[in-house]
C-alpha cells in the first residue's frame, strides 16, 4: 500500500554537517561556561590581594554556592526549597560537631558536613512527592523543625543546643578561605557538568513533564532524588566552609530563613538554568546589600521585595535571559 520508503529512509543530505555545527555550537557554550568557572576561581583565589575584607569575599562565595544549589534544585529539577538553608545549617553543624566533639581534623570535618546534609536530604526525599508550593512550604517546615531539633536542650550534649558551636580547635583563616574557593570551584564545575550532560537534560525533561520523561526511559524518582542530594551536598559544603571560616556561631546564624531567601532571590535574579546567572545575581544583589543592607536592612528588604515582584512579572527567566536576548540580537 505505502511503498515510498525511498523518501523516508536513506541518507538525508546535509545531516552530517549540520550535526557537526551543532556539536561546535554546543562546545562553544560549554567553553564559555567553563571559562566563567575558571575566571571565578581566579578572582577569588587572588581576591584577598585586592579586597581586605575576607568575610565579604567568603559571604559572596557562600551565597554563590547556595544560589547554585537552588539552581540545581529549582532551575534544573523544578523543586523550589524555601527551607534550603536547612542543608546549609546541617553542613555547618556536621563540621562543628565532628571537629569539636569527635576531634576529627578540618578536612574530614568538611566531608562530615557534606555527609550530614546528604543524610538529611535522603531523609527528606519523600517530600519530592509533593509538588509546587506544597513542596516549597514543606521544605520550609522541615528546615524550621531541624533548627528546633539542633537547638533543643535535649540535643545539647551533641550540638551544644542554643549556646552555639565553637570550632576554635581547627581555626585556620588561610586554609578555610582556600577551602571555600575550592568548594565554589567544585560547585560551579558541577553546574557546568549538569548543564552540558545528558543527566542535566534528563533533569530538565522531568521538570517539563514527568510522564513524558518516564516514557523516555528516565527513572524519575532516582534521577530527581540524585539531583536533590547534589543540591543538598552543595549547601552542606557551603555551610561547612562557612562554619570553619567564622569559627563561632549560634543555631540562628546558620539556619536563618533570610539565607534561603537571599539564595533564591540571587539565583532567580541572575537567571536559573544557567551557569553564569546565579553568579551574576549574587554579585549584583549581595553587592547592593553590602552597600546599604547592613546599615539599613529594612530598606534593602523593601528593595528586594519589590525586586522579586518585578523579576516575576517582567523577567521571570532572570538577567541571563535578558543578556542572552541582547547578545542574540547583536550577533544576528
Amino acid at each position: 500500500m505505502l511503498r515510498d520508503d525511498e523518501t523516508l529512509v536513506g541518507e538525508i543530505p546535509g545531516t552530517a554537517s549540520k550535526d557537526r555545527v551543532t556539536q561546535l555550537f554546543r562546545n562553544r557554550s560549554f567553553v564559555g561556561d567553563a571559562a566563567v568557572a575558571l575566571v571565578l576561581i581566579g578572582v577569588f583565589a587572588f581576591g584577598r590581594s585586592f579586597e581586605a575584607n575576607t568575610l565579604l569575599l567568603v559571604n559572596l562565595m557562600v551565597y554563590m554556592i547556595l544560589a547554585q544549589g537552588i539552581n540545581v534544585s529549582y532551575g534544573f529539577t523544578g523543586y523550589l526549597p524555601f527551607g534550603f538553608v536547612g542543608f546549609f545549617g546541617a553542613g555547618a553543624y556536621g563540621m562543628a560537631v565532628s571537629t569539636s566533639k569527635f576531634h576529627v581534623g578540618a578536612y574530614p570535618g568538611l566531608v562530615a558536613g557534606v555527609v550530614v546534609s546528604v543524610v538529611v536530604a535522603l531523609i527528606l526525599s519523600p517530600l519530592l512527592r509533593l509538588r509546587g508550593s506544597y513542596f516549597a512550604i514543606a521544605s520550609l517546615a522541615a528546615a524550621e523543625a531541624l533548627v528546633l531539633l539542633v537547638s533543643n536542650p535535649s540535643a545539647q550534649g551533641i550540638t551544644n543546643g542554643a549556646y552555639g558551636a565553637n570550632l576554635s580547635s581547627v581555626f585556620n583563616p588561610g586554609a578555610s578561605y582556600v577551602s571555600t574557593v575550592v568548594a565554589l570551584g567544585l560547585v560551579t564545575a558541577a553546574v557546568v557538568w549538569l548543564k552540558h550532560s545528558p543527566f542535566g537534560l534528563a533533569l530538565r525533561a522531568i521538570k517539563a513533564d514527568r510522564s513524558s520523561a518516564a516514557m523516555s526511559g528516565i527513572n524519575v524518582v532516582r534521577v530527581r532524588t540524585f539531583a536533590w542530594v547534589i543540591s543538598a551536598a552543595m549547601a552542606g559544603l557551603g555551610g561547612a566552609c562557612y562554619a570553619w571560616v567564622i569559627s563561632v556561631f549560634y543555631p540562628g546564624d546558620v539556619f536563618s530563613l533570610t539565607t534561603s531567601v537571599f539564595a533564591i532571590i540571587f539565583a532567580l535574579f541572575g537567571g536559573i538554568g544557567t551557569v553564569v546567572g546565579p553568579i551574576v545575581g549574587t554579585v549584583v544583589l549581595y553587592g547592593i546589600y553590602n552597600a546599604i543592607g547592613i546599615t539599613v536592612p529594612q530598606y534593602f528588604q523593601l528593595i528586594y521585595g519589590l525586586l522579586i515582584v518585578v523579576i516575576v512579572l517582567f523577567v521571570p527567566r532572570g538577567l541571563a535571559s535578558l543578556g542572552a536576548s541582547v547578545f542574540g540580537r547583536m550577533s544576528r
Binding site: Q301, G305, L306
Partner: peptide, 10 residues
C-alpha cells in the same frame, strides 16, 4: 508563590 513572597517582604 515567589511573587507573594516578594510582597510579604515588602
Amino acid at each position: 508563590l515567589i511573587l507573594f513572597f516578594g510582597i510579604a517582604q515588602a
